[in-house]
């Protein structure tokens, strides 16, 4: 393989691992969005919290990250329940902007709380599958990236199965599409919404652990993630699961490749420039939700 092509393939591979992590954040965001119509701007901060949970657990229990993963996810699911009671229940009958601002406020409080507890410096979390690099022919893939890819694939498939193939998923989708009718049919809509917050938080916890190893965690590390997830969900068509995953992968590939050939500053500038261009051409994203108003 010529060297040029090899570099490109390596950049794509790195981008895929990062994109998988972005996709999980975006999936958690879309899960809550679809269940409640609410925009959870604290999803990134939940990832950050999950990262610190992983750091703390790894201090107490020196076992491989793979064993800590369910623990972190369970703890974050509990936090998700608390979060839904604070950021969703009191605001469900108000215009959506209030719920959005409430998640911004709580996310801010979370960031500052971790800043006060752990300081602003980066902390390293546990590695999922050990450290080092695996050779795939001429390409290299770090064990951390491999772990992220595998875990994201597994969690993504599990979420797809849960939403698409189970009675629980059908009820969840029904109550998201039409909460009033769902309630009339005896579906416990409020409980399902609380569960979707728990799932979203558990996903965030998983990402937090996955990223805390190779990329470290700081109190503000959620901010970049939520911006990426927000872009992914918006260009993916605001509410489409498939669109969110595709959007997240596109963003990460774009960033990885542009950063590889130019600089990370150029990558950020190009990313937002490209998003603006995309929105000009397709004002409702790549996979727009079928909209219609019965006038």
């Amino acid at each position: 393989m010529p060297a040029e092509l090899l570099t490109f393939a390596q950049l794509v591979l790195n981008g895929l691992a990062l994109g998988a992590a972005y996709a999980l954040v975006a999936l958690g965001f879309v899960l809550v969005l679809n269940a409640t119509g609410a925009v959870n701007f604290a999803q990134g901060d939940m990832v950050m919290l999950g990262g610190y949970a992983a750091v703390a657990l790894a201090r107490a229990l020196p076992v491989p990250g793979l064993l800590l993963l369910p623990l972190v996810m369970a703890a974050m699911a509990g936090f998700g329940l608390l979060f839904s009671a604070l950021a969703w229940r009191p605001f469900r009958h108000r215009p959506p902007i209030f719920g959005l601002l409430a998640t911004v406020a709580l996310g801010l409080a979370l960031q500052e709380a971790m800043n006060a507890l752990e300081g602003a410096g980066p902390q390293a979390g546990p590695a999922l599958l050990g450290v080092g690099e695996i050779r795939l022919g001429p390409l290299g893939l770090s064990r951390a990236s491999l772990g992220i890819l595998l875990a994201c694939l597994g969690l993504g498939l599990a979420q797809g199965w849960l939403l698409g193939r189970t009675q629980f998923g059908r009820r969840l989708r029904a109550s998201a599409q039409d909460p009033v009718t769902a309630r009339a049919l005896g579906i416990p809509v409020d409980r399902l919404i609380a569960v979707s917050f728990m799932l979203a938080a558990a996903l965030a916890g998983a990402v937090g652990l996955l990223l805390s190893g190779p990329y470290f965690v700081t109190p503000t590390s959620g901010t970049d993630l939520i911006l990426r997830a927000y872009i992914a969900v918006a260009i993916g068509g605001w509410g489409s699961l498939r669109g969110a995953v595709v959007g997240a992968l596109l963003i990460a590939l774009f960033e990885s490749v542009v950063a590889g050939y130019a600089s990370s500053v150029a990558a950020t500038a190009a990313l937002y420039g490209a998003v603006l261009l995309l929105l000009m051409v397709r004002p409702s994203g790549l996979f727009p939700a079928p909209l219609g108003r019965r006038a």
């Binding site: 872009i231 420039g273 603006l276 000009m280 004002p283």
Partner: peptide, 23 residues
């Protein structure tokens, strides 16, 4: 260029502008 955008798409476009200014 983004005047037709609504709601969250408008928010995203303005966020993009803000990120470019920060850069």
């Amino acid at each position: 260029p983004v005047r037709r955008l609504d709601g969250h798409f408008f928010a995203l476009a303005t966020l993009g502008f803000a990120v470019l200014v920060r850069l």
